[in-house]
């Protein structure tokens, strides 16, 4: 019963994130989806990935979204979708019905006793995945630099203008100093 509530909550939050016009609210609904998914994973025994999902999905990604929205600004759009909404709803419903018919009902499953722990699996048996993750994190750092790059340039430009306007004397002095030398020569 609790699983049903959690799963329903995740789907409702996802639909709300798609429906709302304000971007900040959409980001917060996405955080709720992450929290519900993390709770669901915790319930089935996947504690480690549930904690990572909660901290990264509901924490870091939400902060990044709020940061990005605060840079770009709220740009609420009432423009209609490119594809008619009836067609979109029909396609999504067709996907749900088809997958439901193919996959449901599912048997209870037979969870066997765990042979390996999560740490051994991640660090020893899936070491290549960890290396790929390191590369991906570097790509993420470059992405953050892309978020901040233009901001830095914009922040530097007015400073240059201010210094040029505030201290015009050195320029004048530099142009005036060679004059006496030329006169002497």
């Amino acid at each position: 019963m609790l699983n049903l509530i959690l799963v329903s909550g995740a789907i409702l939050c996802a639909l709300q994130a798609m429906q709302t016009k304000r971007l900040i609210r959409a980001a917060l609904w996405l955080a709720c989806v992450s929290a519900f998914v993390a709770l669901t994973m915790y319930r089935i025994g996947a504690h480690e990935v549930a904690v990572i999902e909660l901290s990264v999905g509901a924490g870091l990604v939400t902060i990044l979204f709020v940061f990005g929205i605060s840079i770009a600004g709220e740009d609420a759009m009432d423009a209609p979708a490119i594809v008619p909404k009836v067609l979109i709803g029909g396609m999504a419903l067709a996907l749900v019905v088809t997958l439901g018919l193919l996959l449901l009902p599912v048997g209870e499953g037979s969870p066997q006793p765990e042979q390996t722990s999560f740490a051994v699996m991640l660090w020893e048996q899936r070491a290549l995945d960890v290396l790929v993750q390191v590369g991906l994190i570097f790509a993420g750092v470059l992405g953050v630099l892309g978020l901040l790059a233009d901001e830095a340039q914009v922040a530097h430009k007015p400073v240059k203008r201010e210094t040029a306007v505030a201290n015009p004397e050195p320029v004048l002095a530099a142009t005036e100093t060679p004059a006496p030398q030329e006169a002497r020569a």
Binding site: A46, V49, Q112, E114, F118, M121, L122, Q125, R126
Partner: peptide, 11 residues
């Protein structure tokens, strides 16, 4: 029955 593998792929 191999939750550790699923978790590592999930991470």
């Amino acid at each position: 029955g191999n939750l550790a593998l699923g978790q590592s792929l999930g991470v």
